[in-house]
Design a protein around this nucleic acid. Structure first.
Lengths: 238, 238, 238, 238
DNA sequence: CATGAATGAGATTTCATTCAT
DNA sequence: TATGAATGAAATCTCATTCAT
């Protein structure tokens, strides 16, 4: 950050007789606050339901600044999409699950995916919203597909190593495998509000989530490695 | 204000120039057309993005009728949610997958779920939208949870029969199993627009979908029945 | 629904052809103008008959501003009620009729009340309208009852002083006395339109009003002080 | 009433397979029910706030009938005004307060007026509403002024007799006297909702109303007959 | 860079009235 | 005579965006 004023809670100068009391004068921080507020608002309400005024208010900024940095609601929304995708892809990059023992790498990928989705509900909301809108706005970003290609390669690498080592008894299409892992980690979170109501179960309960995690690992490992996964959840085995 | 006369100026219809020719006078049919149009519009745009006027127009009805039958946009949306849930639950009821051989029943459930989601993109959109909104409207329906409990029972029955017959080698929590099936059939459809763009693959291609279906069956059956599922997708087995 | 692209169609302002020239940027004054216009419109038409667009126009403001300052028609109406009550209570405060000779104080209170009602037809209209609506909006204001309690105390004080000084020959409940004064000053104004028509007399004529004023003073003073009031309207005494 | 179907609660024939189940076929009664429902609705909501559909429903009639008998909302409202005035004037006619001892006649007039207003809140509401609207609709009725003239004559007669007999010590303009009686009996009822809230007293309480009645009689008689009215409310006399 | 009042356009909702059955 | 679904018009309210200060 630049400027003389830093820290999260930006100071308010009590300047008597002046109307403008809030003077952060830290462009980058202002932009950041607006973007963060936008992620929350768009995730909570969807594109149409989100209110630019709410975003400005939540960011402790004002309309002029919002339009100054992002031009209009659409472009702010696109920036929001890129931001959440950037965050998840960056985290995946740091994993290097394809560089170790295939079975351990697989478990690591499943655990990471499970946890990352749980920790980033805004990502889920925004992706769902984009799918309702047929990726109307995502398609305006060239950045996101570019960030995604490396992930596919890593899954392929891991799979190949596992098959060659005889650890994996199946050799599915890497995309199918990744989609399956994604699905098992995603659905109970993406649908937590509707399913909690329709099933009358609390899908956000910590114990329930841990049981889910074990089940997911079981399903994936039993598929790739055969009937006895590394960490059997005893109760489930007949 | 003031002045002694504010000249009566109540509304008087301009009767000349009528142009409407479509006069069904069939309340039930009108209501139905409005509801169908609402499913489409809400699925396409989400709650906030949907326009009641579009719905009225698509239903070949008058906006006033829409309010006559459904009171307001929110209640129309709730009726829409109930309608898509009613349809899927009714179809599941007709399956009777718990009344036959457990392995066949399981395959039937997976195939049905896979197909029903593929055939009902509106259901997926509306469920996603409700999750963005934290089920705020779904929660106003008591009908939907009531319709869902029977499904859970059927899954439990099937599972128990399979375990007792020695056909299933695992005995997971029925909800976990059902969620897994749901996830594998749901995610590639719910995210088809974003994933088609990020992965640069066409997830709506018929061949790809058939490959996906085989993969899903493989994953589920290998988990419940062991490494050799009924219809091996040869290429995937090492 | 269906189709793969519903072409982004978000609102884009048509900037050409601006015509507004009146740009005050004085929030307090704008709010005030809206409130004044609202008093007039609600007094003239009642709550349901009033048109928010008329109010905005009369206030030389924009409908959006009206909603910015007052949220909706109901809350604007409540603000209107509070405003007319505030005005009359403030004027009563300035009277200090309880601080002087009780007989003079009484005459002062009667004269003031008579005159204030005559000068503020909006107050009368709005109070009548609230009574039609069973005070449903007034009851949402805590401010008004708070402002009223001081008045009751002043009437009690005046009455007590007059009785102790032997000037008043009766000692009625202060509320009854105040209601009687209120009634005598109110009814010929509140009902001036209906009574002018049914009685075929012009109740807004200045001479008639002066005769009414003298009659009212007579009635009140003859009740409290006995048969010979201070300013006898000779013609009326036998 | 004509026709075969009578009684207040008109019967509903359960005719299977037919849509029209409600067939009173008693034109006069239908008209009457609509008019009664209109009195209630207009009294409760005012002209603009009243809903013709509510009136039809409350009258157990339908739109077509309402428009058949009354043409439109305005004419229905005018019929409503005439109806409430007709009722009060008819009751006054039956009083004959000018035909007996002037003091007793006066008391009778006061008591009647006090009671009649208390018993007919709809009259009060509708008169207030007309005054808000500057008698816009009342003025379209020639019937009402015609009904009113007899009352003025009766007050004059009573007054003259009392003065000649030496019972009344004042000889005010009869209209002023009648207005004063009207005012004292009207205001606590016309303003019962606002005053109950602003004064934090229940103006509808039976004991309070009886105290008010005695006070009103005191005020009127002390004015016309001198300091000792016929029924002194002891507590009030010093 | 910062403020937030003001705006035009369009959304939702309401309503008296009409008309096919 | 009776029914109540359907309608056009106008009301209330919302929203992204602009602009004077």
């Amino acid at each position: 950050m630049s400027g003389t004023d830093n820290g999260k809670k930006t100071r308010k100068r009590a300047t008597a007789g002046r109307k403008h009391t809030y003077v952060p004068r830290d462009p980058a921080a202002t932009r950041r606050r607006i973007l963060d507020a936008a992620v929350n608002e768009f995730a909570d309400k969807g594109f149409s339901g989100a209110r630019v005024e709410n975003i400005a208010k939540a960011a402790n900024a004002n309309m002029r600044m919002l339009y100054h940095y992002f031009n209009d609601k659409e472009q702010l929304y696109i920036a929001t999409i890129e931001e959440v995708y950037r965050a998840v892809r960056a985290a995946e990059q740091d994993l290097h699950f394809d560089e170790e023992d295939p079975r351990l790498g697989l478990e690591r990928l499943v655990d990471f995916t499970f946890k990352h989705f749980a920790d980033n509900p805004d990502l889920i909301s925004i992706v769902m919203n984009e799918n309702i809108l047929r990726a109307q706005f995502l398609k305006q970003s060239e950045l996101v597909p570019a960030m995604t290609s490396r992930l596919s390669n890593s899954v392929s690498t891991m799979l190949k190593k596992g098959v060659e080592a005889g650890v994996f008894i199946r050799n599915p299409d890497p995309t199918q495998l990744w989609l399956t892992i994604f699905a098992l980690c995603w659905v109970h979170l993406a649908n937590k509000y509707t399913m909690s109501w329709t099933l009358q179960i609390d899908l956000t309960d910590a114990d329930w989530l841990e049981a889910r995690r074990r089940h997911v690992v079981d399903v994936v490992l039993s598929y790739l490695c055969g009937p006895r996964p590394s960490t059997p959840s005893a109760a489930e085995i007949v």
